[in-house]
Design a protein around this nucleic acid. Structure first.
Lengths: 197, 197, 197, 197
DNA sequence: AATGAATGAGAATTCATTCAT
DNA sequence: AATGAATGAATTCTCATTCAT
């Protein structure tokens, strides 16, 4: 039972490692099989084909992400505190999962076929916490109400994606967490109540 | 004579279109040949191999870029005016050549092998105009002298690359030129004389 | 299990037949695959590439040769009797394996790349029986001691190679075994004790 | 007029040089054209195709050989003296034309397709001088009459081919002419009157 | 369920040959 | 006559996917 799940996990983990090095085309099923210690054919028990395996990565990783962030948000009061935590975890997640970051940000997001499958949209929707936080903030009166919550979510996730992508393109020349304060500030400026001029 | 040049051009143009869609590995010589209306074998008359064709794109495009920008800079007086023009043309060039942009910014710049070939460095060196402008600015006294001109060039080109990359990742959801004013401002702030605090 | 070995054998046998007809360059993997009744791709499961397959022929055949000759030498007493048997088997082997003979003697021995790979040296070393026979003969006093055993081995194998090559160049117009007596005589004259003049 | 002949000659000479290095398959028309200072297409004015060019080499070279040897034989009296001269020139010819030797002895003679074209037989027939010498020798009484003259010709040419081939296989480690005396002796022993036992 | 041998559809590349200029 | 650009068939090799065991 759990052995089955473990095998599936091992394959996915191997896939992340292999795909993150050379991308989709450069990577071969045989190398993934070798690294996962299973036979090539066995991969097809768990995943329909190479593309299915590839696209399973963000789905699985997103489940991981949303599960973890839920825990981290527990017990935190105040919209801005929650947003700070969200941003912090988002950065922390990609700092500790740079290989997945490469796949998601540098390969999938750039590929037309990924956009076509709309898995990306699914991913955005999955990250529901930020939407809830924004909504509650609007109700509390701490978040501007003149902008649609979906747009505000786009704004937050857009900034974060951008920062992570830039960091990955630099191949980790600096510490991603360095930017935590600046990002938090600009996000809060962006979605908070407009200044009274 | 000119037919030969036309064929070579057609192949390069087809290569830009094809490569920009799927990247290096996803694209096939046969598709490029089909789109250029030549036989597969003919491509090898003009380019040593697939990689050579791929790397010929930025070389050719850079020649185009530097030639054009020279014309645009003619007759403009004043360091900052020249910088404004440079930035404007840089943005305009990628706005009108987004396919080449994808190849250069999203594929080549991220690939290790491209960085290794040092063609990228060649490209930076080719864009010599900005270096001259900076140098003249230092002599005129409008550009800060406490920072090396090569660093200043990096700063300018770094910002521009970054802005274009971000735009491409959004697949053209907004107009690249929108950012012209903001970029100009931040560039001039960055390389101009430091504020007297 | 044994099917795997059988497939590998079938490929090698097909390779011998095909390569012996047209040499390395003239022969195609597709023809070898056809003759071995396997898919082209299967060949690459067993051999790294075309050259690897080509150079595997003498290795495999030498193992065959040395294994068989061991059996034939069993129970034979007397240096010269052993030498006679060795020569006999050598001629017999190429008489019954003329296709391999063509590959080894007419193509590989002439090719610079083969000599470079030192597989040829490996082959010579593999045929260790003749060296042992010579050594024992020296100890017994039937073989001349004023010449190094390695030189004597060269002499024997040199004559044999030469005779087989000549026969192959005539495309089997005569029976290779015809020369058995003459060769034996000249070999024994060459390596035996010098005549007392 | 003579320019045409000169071009044809230049192509043939280039072909000899190129083919002798890498054999038929390894050599390309484009390299031959480059070396002959003509366009690729021009080769097809003079030779039907690659194979035609290849097989033209021995034809041309044989004409050269037979023409020269005629001059060398002028004024020589006595069958054995003529045979000596013939052997001498044969060796001298390949010593000074080793590239052609490689093509003829190591590639053509070994290839089935060459044997099929029967050009080889044509060559043997072309070397008519040796047949005349033998015939005259029989009439003079210096050459054995119990063997057919065609067999005797085979014997002479067989020995010579063999000696040259062996020399080429050694890649010129020794001087071909060294063997002149031995060969002459064994040829004369072979075709001369049988010993009175 | 798991295996891994076998497949065969492509892909890049080479080059003899043709043909418009 | 000469050229050399263009062709496209053929070749080696890779690898996702299937299937008998």
């Amino acid at each position: 039972m759990s052995k089955k799940i473990a095998t599936k996990q091992a394959i996915l983990q191997a896939a992340i490692e292999v795909f993150s090095k050379g991308g989709f085309r450069n990577s071969s099923i045989s190398e993934i099989a070798r690294r996962a210690n299973v036979a090539e054919g066995s991969i097809y028990r768990y995943y329909k084909n190479k593309e299915d395996l590839f696209f399973s990565i963000p789905i699985q990783k997103t489940i991981e992400f949303t599960g973890e962030i839920d825990l981290h948000l527990q017990g935190i009061r105040g919209t801005f505190n929650q947003i700070r935590k969200f941003i912090w975890y988002y950065l922390y997640f990609f700092k500790t999962n740079p290989e997945y970051g490469r796949i998601l940000m540098l390969e999938m997001r750039v590929s037309r076929s990924f956009v076509k499958t709309k898995t990306y949209n699914f991913l955005k929707k999955s990250i529901s916490q930020i939407l809830q936080i924004i909504e509650e903030g609007q109700n509390e009166g701490t978040i501007r109400k003149d902008v649609n919550i979906y747009i505000l979510r786009e704004l937050v996730l857009g900034i974060l994606e951008h920062v992570v992508t830039r960091w990955l393109l630099q191949e980790g020349k600096y510490d991603l967490m360095e930017y935590y304060e600046d990002i938090t500030k600009s996000v809060i400026d962006g979605i908070g109540l407009p200044r009274k001029a």
